[in-house]
Design a binder for these strands. Sequence first.
DNA 1: CCATTTTATCTTGAACTCAAGATTTCTATA
DNA 2: TATAGAAATCTTGAGTTCAAGATAAAATGG
Lengths: 170, 170
Amino acid sequence: MSLERKGDAVDTIIEQWNRERPDLDVSPMAPIGRLKRCAALMDRRLDEAFTAFDISFWEFDVLATLRRSGAPYCLAPTALFSTLMITSGTMTHRLQRLEARGLVERKANPDDARSKLVQLTDSGLALIERAVEAHVANEWRILEPLEAADLRALEESLVKLLAVLEPSGD
Amino acid sequence: MSLERKGDAVDTIIEQWNRERPDLDVSPMAPIGRLKRCAALMDRRLDEAFTAFDISFWEFDVLATLRRSGAPYCLAPTALFSTLMITSGTMTHRLQRLEARGLVERKANPDDARSKLVQLTDSGLALIERAVEAHVANEWRILEPLEAADLRALEESLVKLLAVLEPSGD
DNA sequence: CCATTTTATCTTGAACTCAAGATTTCTATA
DNA sequence: TATAGAAATCTTGAGTTCAAGATAAAATGG
């Protein structure tokens, strides 16, 4: 039951605060600090799959959003940057890069002249089809060391945390 | 037992992939996607506490690392950027900013002329003492909607995930 | 004690991001 | 149908980050 756990980086931080500021109860730093650290380490692991395709995380994100929207793999910029949690300016920049690489193309929106739709090119589609396979395989590999029960518990915990954090919970 | 859960953003993404690429088992996207999304949303919430002190997240991070190292609140740059998971170049830039704001100062290292130690100024110390209090209070506030048992479960899950991701597990 | 290697840090240049403001087009309504 | 307000996007400028290379000092092995 009470297995001794070797302290990780977050344990060290909390011990330091307890020594320096015993007046503060910093226990929320445990889940929050680990969340941040897990996310940072996870990003690095995920990036490894993308470099094999010469794309970065954000390029994958945009292409994958278009791909999973279904044929004809075409969305308005607003739909993209809302989903991706980035600003419109960042979206403009990303689209320029992707268009320059020939992975997406812009076309007039017949219903709204304010926007130019973004569509996967054949080349972009071919790339994302292979990249997403490698990405998912990589995710399986990363999580493989976790016991099935632990993975389920993690999933369940994150569902509850996300529900608390989602803007809809304002 | 089987309460219906309203789908979140990650559920939508997984449903899309299942429709578009039924050949792929994308179930690892559930925990990984939520981890990323939780981390992004958490960052925003944490930032709110810092803006009240006119500092950004990275400024807090550096000052806090110095503060919790204990008196005399003085570390070598390498110790700082290793802890903070950033490159040396980024550290140089951050230190220049913090020094310009009068929150840290540089002093010769008597034991190693290659490094100039970084130390909190009185002003920097005063700032971080107040900022960390606000930060911890904010963390309590953010997690407060979670049931105690759920918080414990989350904590436990993240410990296990972090153990899998930490570089020591190479 | 000298040459080599390692360590610590800084410099440089490019990339990515955001906030705020500008532009163009749509929408509702008087 | 004008017109004000809303919406979609782009532009601009500044800030943050990293990778790679430069520099200086320390440690190591004869």
